[in-house]
């Protein structure tokens, strides 16, 4: 048997710091709730130690096969436009992030969450909870079946309405790669007015939060596909010192 040439052993020494303008700060007064919740003291820059370079590992026994399909969690089908939301989770070095946990949650098609805090007078859907999860496959791919969430009003400012969105939570390989974000839909006229979407100055960074219509994942006669690729922080790597 031929021996594959061993790739040089790489040691992760830390994770890349964000490009300027691509990650939000804490105080952002146009999003009013940040005012009493943002730290006022400067942050202390944390060197990435073993504690930050490692993170929780989740297994296939924890995520059930149907957990990715939000349209089949109840007796009947939820009201709304069925969609497929899929994509790849990569790191900044363009490598897939395999077997990582992806958690999502969203409003129903009327823009209502089944949550005691949500008092918006829009109908609940007994056939829709709006929570899903999956693990990425070996190539970093994930896929959810759901319905398109509705827009809804919130109290931030006069006539504040959130653009349609799906919340995403990802772990990646390390404590330092933890990411919570939101996915938006192309052409949504509310994006221009949304303080969360507009929390970073880099326009291209904002636009990467918008999914794209995707014929490849569209199921004919069944569900439109939207693609949303997620980039987690990439490691800074140096060749491992090997002792002989």
């Amino acid at each position: 048997m031929k021996q594959a040439k061993a790739a040089p052993q790489m040691e992760v020494t830390g994770y890349r710091r964000p490009f300027p303008g691509t990650q939000p700060g804490y105080l952002f007064p146009t999003y009013a709730a940040t005012v009493k919740r943002a730290p006022t003291q400067p942050l202390v820059i944390l060197p990435h130690t073993l504690s930050e370079l490692t993170g929780p590992v989740f297994g296939h026994d924890e995520v059930l096969p149907g957990d990715h399909d939000l349209t089949r969690q109840h007796k009947g089908a939820p009201i709304g436009e069925r969609i497929i939301v899929s994509g790849r989770v990569l790191d900044q070095n363009a490598r897939p992030v395999p077997h990582t946990l992806v958690e999502i949650w969203q409003a129903n098609s009327a823009g209502r969450y089944p949550h005691k805090v949500d008092q918006h007078d829009a109908p609940m859907d007994p056939n829709f909870t709006g929570a899903g999860r999956c693990l990425t496959d070996a190539e970093g791919r994930y896929r959810f079946v759901t319905i398109r969430p509705g827009e809804y009003p919130w109290g931030n400012h006069y006539n504040a309405w959130r653009p349609a969105h799906i919340h995403f939570s990802l772990f990646g390989p390390a404590f330092a790669t933890r990411l919570v974000t939101q996915m938006y839909f192309p052409g949504d006229p509310l994006l221009a007015y949304d303080p969360m979407y507009n929390c970073v100055p880099d326009e291209r960074a904002r636009q990467r939060l918008i999914s794209t219509l995707d014929w490849e994942s569209t199921m004919p006669q069944i569900a439109l596909g939207y693609r949303f690729d997620i980039i987690l922080r990439g490691a800074e790597e140096t060749p491992m010192q090997t002792k002989r």
């Binding site: 990650q23 070095n93 958690e103 949650w105 969450y113 929570a131 919340h167 974000t181 990467r208 980039i231």
Partner: peptide, 23 residues
């Protein structure tokens, strides 16, 4: 080459719907 990491967004007030299963 380096891609830019996806922008973080708030968990919002309804986080429990998606995240409570793993409490």
């Amino acid at each position: 080459m380096s891609l830019q990491a996806t922008t973080s967004q708030t968990v919002g007030p309804y986080l429990h719907i998606g995240l409570s299963w793993l409490i």
